[in-house]
Design a protein around this nucleic acid. Structure first.
Length: 562
RNA sequence: GGACCAGUGGCCUAGUGGAUAUGGCGAUAGCCUCCUAAGCUAUAGGUCGGGGGUUCGAAUCCCCCCUGGUCCGCCA
């Protein structure tokens, strides 16, 4: 890992300020001035000090500006209404930044290697149900989060946890055996099961006789009746095949797959052990952990009939993660409706004595909804991932063909997946109201816009006969410098995203970079540049690297042309 | 009833203690003999849900209220 210029400058500057102020225990906050003309970084420190020193903030700022010994690379400090604004040696900064990016290339933005091992659990689809656009949000967010953790230096394990047991499976199996027994669809077998599930659920609501039949299937499933298990294994495989096809298409690679069916027995054992240890207690035949003193109610960890619950299995899975995989941080990407549940789970893990319980984090996200309301696999009013992908792909293909580009098929695939993923990357505390018009929009704040900027940068570089990363800078104009300045921020953005678990920091950033590049591109010619030609070429290369690296964190490919 | 999340121009959105609130969509007016127009430029559009408070400074923190959503299940 090379030097992170911007961060180093800030550190050195902080030291200089400390010396100038000569006070212990002050927190120095930096911000960006609203305009580059005012400086490169600023601090409102004097307002903070005014209280302590009982002096006018303007005077304090002036004193600091007069006495501070600035580190190398920072030209001057200015007092502006109490703010202290610092000006970089911009040519030096630009040259250093661009050269650093080009040298580090794919590693630019990478954080220092860390010892703590992270596991990100995401996707967690249920077999025997359809994979819809709500599931897509989870995969996109989870994969981006895992990529960000890894890039910021944590050894990271990408984990999936498949829900292959439970009532929904029994419903689907009942429906299959009742109405489709022996049917093996040619293709899209997973989707077929999704439809069977929805149909079964509907019919079960309407008939008590059906209910009785279903209960037998449920019992058979729990008791691992041979015939039922055969159908279960076959259909389960259909769903898994479909999931794997989707993951492959999305370019998502899990390191490990867990299955509910594999941890339920271990979970049952744990629940009983907790009962013996006194961590849990018996209530009406069920095993519960009393969390009332933590404001978390009672947590049921085993049914009174002795069968496993979601919680039972999650306890076993967590133990496996801590003990077998030796992870230090455990991140769960799961919908926000399970917030309370995860608080209970983490508290219980803590009571079980796992030190890692404090480093468990539930990254929650809100639903993807349709304009007419919530989607429900049960109701069957869902937009399937495959439907959405096909429609978007068709539009992308149409648009690529209009542009006369040779490998239309692969480019349109890249554009399609980029557009889908990027749209899922928004603030996870907000609902996404899905609509087709927006899904087919490739302009403005979208992935294709960013990919397009990358393609243009690539195109320029191809047209430059001799590329040299040796350059001097004459005069820097505003567009050039603004771009440099933004590019210098990637390492900090990645770091912040990994600390706050916020993939959207990266998606917002990469959009800003693309926008800034487009503005630069329109104002500053590169190939026929009258000045700064070599510098601009290098700047374009650096931009391409930053766009590529940031998009890669989001799991989005950066095409050479489009 | 209790808890949590959200509320920013017509719509979507950035910003969670700092300077004049960021962009996008849509609208209007321009820019392809010039490195790809999936682009760029300009214009119009704002009680940052409402009201109090803390602070030198609040979209951001505290309190109350309104609206929408979620959870409080031996479902996941």
């Amino acid at each position: 890992m090379g030097t992170i210029l911007l961060k180093n400058l800030k550190n050195e500057l902080e030291n200089s300020i400390r010396k100038a102020v000569d006070l212990e225990e002050i927190v120095i906050v930096f911000s960006r001035p609203p305009d580059f003309k005012l400086g490169d970084i600023a601090t409102p420190l004097s307002f903070e000090l005014a209280k302590k020193l009982k002096k006018n903030p303007m005077q304090i700022a002036k004193d600091i500006v007069d006495t501070i010994i600035l580190p190398e690379g920072i030209e001057r400090a200015e007092n502006s209404g109490g703010y202290i604004n610092f000006f970089f040696d911009r040519k030096y900064f630009s040259k250093k930044t661009v050269m650093t990016i080009i040298n580090e290339n794919d590693s630019y933005g990478k954080g220092e290697e860390k010892k703590e091992k992270v596991m990100v659990e995401y996707s967690q689809p249920n077999t025997h149900k359809s994979f819809h656009i709500g599931h897509l949000r989870n995969v996109c967010l989870g994969d981006a989060l895992a990529n960000i953790m890894e890039f910021s230096g944590y050894p990271t394990v990408k984990a999936n946890y498949i829900g292959d047991v439970g009532a929904h499976v029994a419903k689907c199996l009942w429906g299959y055996m009742k109405f489709y027994n022996g049917v093996v669809p040619e293709k899209n077998r997973g989707e077929f099961l999704g439809k069977v599930y929805s149909e079964a659920d509907n019919k079960l609501k309407k008939s008590e006789d059906y209910q009785e039949e279903y209960k037998v299937v449920l019992k058979n499933l729990y008791e691992e009746d041979k015939r039922t298990m055969d159908v279960w294994r076959m259909t389960r495989e259909w769903s898994l095949e479909e999931f794997n096809r989707i993951y492959k298409e999305l370019g998502v690679n899990f390191d490990i797959f867990f299955y509910e069916s594999e941890v339920k027995d271990e979970g049952t054992k744990i629940a009983k052990e907790l009962l013996d240890k006194g961590v849990a207690k018996n209530k009406d035949g069920a095993v519960i952990v009393d969390l009332k003193e933590y404001g978390l109610d009672e947590f049921v960890i085993l049914r009174s009939d002795g069968t496993a619950l979601y919680s039972t299995k999650d306890l076993a899975l967590a133990e496996k993660k801590f003990q077998d995989f030796k992870i230090d941080l455990s991140l769960y990407v799961v919908g926000s409706e399970q917030k309370f549940y995860f608080k209970q789970l983490f508290k219980t893990l803590e009571l079980m004595g796992f030190s890692q319980a404090k480093r468990c984090y539930h990254l929650s996200y809100e639903l993807v909804m349709l304009e007419e309301g919530k989607m429900s696999s049960r109701e069957g009013n869902v937009v399937l991932y495959s439907e959405l992908k096909d429609v978007v792909k068709k539009e992308a293909l149409k648009q690529v063909r209009e542009r006369n580009i040779s490998n239309a098929e692969s480019i349109s695939e890249i554009v399609t997946l980029g557009a889908l993923k990027y749209s899922m990357m928004k603030d996870n505390n907000k609902r996404i109201i899905f609509n087709w018009k927006k899904a087919l929009d490739f302009e403005g704040d979208t992935a294709p816009y960013i990919q397009y900027a990358h393609a243009r940068a690539s195109s320029i570089l191809k047209k430059i006969a001799v590329f040299t990363s040796e350059f001097e800078i004459d005069e820097l104009n505003e567009k050039e410098y603004k771009l440099v300045s933004l590019l210098s921020e990637l390492p900090e953005i990645v770091e912040k995203a990994s600390i706050d678990y916020r993939p959207d920091y990266v998606s917002n950033y990469v959009y800003d970079v693309a926008k800034c590049f487009n503005e630069f591109y329109h104002e500053c010619h590169v190939i026929n540049a009258e000045s700064n030609k070599e510098f601009r070429a290098s700047l374009v290369k650096a931009t391409k690297i930053v766009l590529h690296n940031a998009l890669a964190l989001l799991g989005i490919k950066a095409p050479e042309e489009m």
